[in-house]
Amino acid sequence: MNASRITCLISSINKTNFIKHVKFNELFINIGKGRKPYSIYSSLKPEPEIREMVAKKYRIVSSIVLTRPPQILRDLHPFEKEYYLYQQKLEQIHSPPFPQDFYFKKGSIAEKRWNKRKEQDKKNALSVFSEFNDNLKDKSDIVEGEEDINNDNKSLGDVEEEEIKIASRITQDDLNNNLKSLNRALHRTLYLIVKKPRDEHAWQFPQGGVNNRESLIQAAARELEEECGNKMDVWFVGRRPIGCYKYTYPKNFVREDDKDIKGSMVFFMKAHIFAGQVHVDQKEIVDFAWVTKQEMKDFVTSNYYSAVLDMLSEF
């Protein structure tokens, strides 16, 4: 297609197919120049100036609830622990017979090792039920009679099986109470709160005003980068806010730029952190901490805490 063809098309424009032709024409031009569609119109429009969003005399503020999900299973209540143990042993006793011939070749080392494990498991499982205790004594006598097999297994087992070491649930940062570490309280969800250089309402989730040219999520991402650095791998959970907190400024507090504004409306955006750490700029933010829901109560004001309480995870 060439320029003469375009002029031909434009000349044939009438009222009915005007829009159709304009769209076609525009698409053609844009593909040729490698631009996005509708870019010719945006260049003609004057760019709107950047200013803060205000709705009904309330400043719109976007805040980020940056979480680190639990890394290990939660701590069990003693009753839960007992329950799961009981269920497990009940299942062991009532499970259908194991097809040993299918899994192990007769007389193999693996089979011997399996037999030994089986006896031990049975003993452990039966010890829960007091009525089986008498039977247990008889069985233990039989096991003692086959000592030579057990000795063989021990020597074989030492060579092949490596013992698995389970890491501690409590880390060094837990013991030192290092609130800046992400490697603490592994069984709980942690939340990032930051401290502003002022006496009242100092601790908060990172937050900042929304411009008229960006969405809540863009504003949250921008504020996080400005205040806490760009050395974090962050994923936002959806584009919708998970909560809102509306408050009015105290009477003696007057904003310099706009005296009409009564207060702020804070929208909270949820995000997960996968890697990295906060690096505070010493201007807007002076300190930060990774805290659980319960620990957060000691940092923030009671009004703020009651506003964000329901958004936070109990685990």
Partner: peptide
């Protein structure tokens, strides 16, 4: 306790709701 079941209850269900 099953690992994935716990993960669903603690973390995933919250995110899916949003």
């Amino acid at each position: 306790m099953i690992r994935l079941e716990e993960f669903y209850d603690n973390t995933l269900s919250d995110n899916l709701m949003i």
